[in-house]
């Protein structure tokens, strides 16, 4: 029993140890990173349908090839950084599955040098991917420790076009509004009205739906030129319901 309890304690300690990963030379992981992007391409062909694109934008995929995801996960999980799965980053938060990050980035359809807002910085990976695409990114994190870690990590990795702060994302970032695209990674019972207001006409907002580790559905919100709003629920094609009409 003693030995078992020791093992359990060690396992528990490992699972909660969330030491920030020191950036590792990019080439150490470059092969697995390329493999990750190939996996993303394969999945997008498999699950596409409706508004979910079959082929993701090549610029987005290039950004995913360049972004050192291993630097955004806890040190003890770095070997899993390029698996197509979400990983825990502490405080009940996760770094999303790479395919979902790629899809969300793609769905924003941002023109080069756009201005994007992210609610829920988490590890900072989504902000880094957007920055790799050359966008100006404003990101807000509610959990102070995560906000500090992500800001330092983004700065250390040279993502100078990302401005990160800790705070309540509900009211967006009025000083930097309006935005061409908004990503809301913190699930909510409703879309905060201030965020709709801060979205440019023609702008897009993407909201992942579902609890931690369980995000497979995305909500796309488009603001029309006349200010009205349309939403579109996206699903993997195999789960798009068949009805009597087909």
């Amino acid at each position: 029993m003693t030995r078992l309890s020791c093992r359990l304690v060690i396992a528990a300690m490992l699972a909660v140890s969330l030491a920030t990963a020191a950036p590792v030379a990019a080439d150490q992981y470059s092969a697995v990173r390329l493999e990750m992007v190939r996996t993303i391409e394969a999945i997008s062909e498999q699950v596409s349908g409706g508004a979910t694109p079959t082929r993701l934008d090549s610029g987005v995929l290039d950004a995913m090839r360049r972004t050192p995801r291993h630097a955004f996960v806890p040190a003890h999980l770095q070997d899993l950084a390029y698996s197509d799965r979400p990983l825990p980053i502490g405080y009940g938060q996760t770094i999303s599955q790479p395919y979902i990050v790629a899809l969300m980035t793609d769905l924003l359809r941002l023109e080069p040098h756009s201005r994007a807002l992210e609610i829920g910085t988490g590890s900072g990976y989504q902000a880094a991917v957007l920055a790799e695409l050359g966008h100006e990114v404003f990101t807000i994190e509610i959990v102070p420790a995560l906000a500090d870690q992500a800001a330092k990590r983004l700065s250390d990795l040279g993502y100078d076009t990302v401005r990160a702060r800790e705070g309540d994302g509900y009211f967006g970032w009025p000083d930097a509004a309006p935005f061409d695209g908004i990503v809301v990674t913190a699930a909510a019972s409703h879309v905060p009205p201030p965020l709709i207001k801060q979205l440019k006409p023609g702008g897009r907002m993407v909201i992942p739906v579902g609890a931690a580790f369980m995000t497979q559905q995305l909500m796309l919100i488009e603001k029309q030129a006349d200010g009205t709003v349309r939403t579109e629920a996206l699903l993997p094609v195999s789960f798009v319901p068949l009805t009597s009409a087909q």
């Binding site: 409706g50 349309r230 939403t231 579109e232 629920a233 009805t243 009409a245």
Partner: peptide, 17 residues
């Protein structure tokens, strides 16, 4: 299926069925 869209008008189709 105008403001809050699904890939198809799933809810309406289901109600009809």
């Amino acid at each position: 299926n105008r403001f809050n869209r699904m890939a198809k008008p799933t809810l309406y189709d289901a109600a009809v069925a």
